[in-house]
Amino acid sequence: MRALGSVEQMSEVLQAAVLAGINHLETAPAYGPAEDFLGQALQRADRQPDGGWVMTSKLLPGLSLREGKHQLLKILERLGCNKLDNLAIHGLNRPEHLDWALQGDGRALLDWAQGEGHTVQVGFSSHGSQDLIATAISSGRFQFCSLHLHLLDPQRLPLALRALKRGMGILAISPADKGGRLQAPSPTLKSDCAPFTPLQLAYRFLLAQGISTLSVGAAKASDLALAAALQRSDSPLTAEEQSSLQRLADHRRGRLGSDLCGQCQACLPCPNEVPIPELLRLRNLAIGHDMTPFCQERYNLIGRAGHWWETLDASACQRCGDCLPRCPHQLKIPDLLADTHRRLQAAPRRRLWG
């Protein structure tokens, strides 16, 4: 989704992926010319991984059966392949998206795709609620899922482990960039993770949990250097890695003191539908690891990214106090939300996609 300058750029990344030991390519029609470039790069390639490529692409929810069939056949045409290994619903973020996938045209589309041999497995990616993802996992409809799983935001990790127990494959969405722009960390975060780099620690944290695939958004060959270095690094965390993770948490706790939000979710539901834990998580990172630029970027996407992100920011808090007696740490939540808004409000930036 990032090597979009030319077919030559995509070919460079593809060649580096083979050398790095990568065998899984994930793309989507929504990623501009990615599928066209990837298909042409695959035709030009003079080598491929042992056993060939694992190919994943995605379709947006809500398509009619006719349009879905047309779009899937066009995906195969662009990629120059007879079938996908994995077809995902791209952004199963709302209850109506799940309803579409489990019945009606969505169900018929997935059944047709597998029945006709156009894909081996069907799955979903989701930026939705915990309850929605849990329902999708337990539905029995899907063989894999792609979730936001991050070192600095492990909220969905229990869902991923539940899916793994069901035999589902798990892809971690953007553990580097969406995980905190860890490819370009703040000096404070680098110090907090030493002697490991933040990205190295983040990858190892997920691999040690049994997560089967980490997505790496490579725009150039050098972006895959760490992936190459971490081949077959899915062993349990070492004592040194565990020590670094503990120091990371200790530093965050020390800087935030009694204002640290533990992300327990007890404050929800908010009568005004303010996503309190997510907003205070950004505050945790801004103060705890000096990640203000990243947190401002995420905060100022709120309300501007449709169903891909939150719709209400901290200014929506009406100070009703409904959350206060439910917080086990007795946080002054309205005050912390106001502080979050003051710290992170900035000029909005455009999303990479959408």
Rank of each mutant, 00 (worst) to 15 (best):
R343I: 02
Q43W: 14
D290G: 03
L59V: 06
H97K: 09
G254I: 02
Q9C: 12
S233N: 06
I173Y: 14
K69Y: 04
M55R: 08
V216C: 10
R247I: 05
L199D: 05
R283D: 01
A346M: 06
R319K: 15
A88Y: 14
A184Q: 07
T238G: 08
Q345S: 15
A346L: 03
D131T: 14
G254T: 06
Q143S: 05
R156V: 00
P95R: 12
P187H: 05
D153S: 04
R94M: 15
S11I: 12
A34H: 09
R181D: 02
S146K: 04
L159T: 03
L207V: 01
Q318G: 13
T311F: 12
A134E: 10
S235G: 13
H70N: 12
A239L: 13
T135V: 11
A219M: 11
C295W: 01
R94N: 12
D36F: 12
R47T: 14
M1P: 07
L19V: 07
R298T: 02
A208W: 02
R351S: 11
A20R: 08
P29N: 05
R255W: 03
D259P: 11
E241M: 03
N93I: 10
S186P: 02
G140I: 02
V54N: 06
P61S: 10
A45C: 14
A219P: 03
R342C: 09
R304H: 09
P293N: 01
H97V: 11
K58L: 09
S315N: 11
G321S: 13
D234Y: 11
Q155C: 08
A218D: 04
L224Y: 06
G21E: 07
A16Q: 11
I287P: 00
R44I: 13
P198N: 02
A28C: 06
L189N: 00
P33N: 09
A194T: 08
V216H: 08
R94S: 13
P271H: 15
L159W: 02
I211F: 04
F142T: 11
I170Y: 00
R351C: 12
I75A: 13
R350I: 07
Q209D: 01
Q265Y: 15
L72N: 08
Q43H: 15
C323W: 08
L102D: 12
R166A: 03
G91K: 01
G106C: 12
P29E: 09
K190F: 11
M168Q: 08
E278G: 13
G306Y: 10
A229R: 09
L157K: 03
T292P: 01
A108W: 12
F37E: 09
R162Y: 05
L301K: 03
N272D: 15
P195H: 05
A249C: 07
P277G: 07
A113N: 10
C327K: 14
R44W: 13
A101G: 10
L60D: 07
Q200Y: 10
L84G: 09
E240I: 08
A176V: 01
T27D: 04
Q40P: 15
I75F: 01
L279C: 04
I276H: 13
E240R: 07
A184Y: 10
G167D: 02
G68S: 04
L268C: 14
D313L: 02
L206V: 00
A208C: 00
G68T: 05
P275E: 10
A30D: 08
C270I: 15
E67P: 10
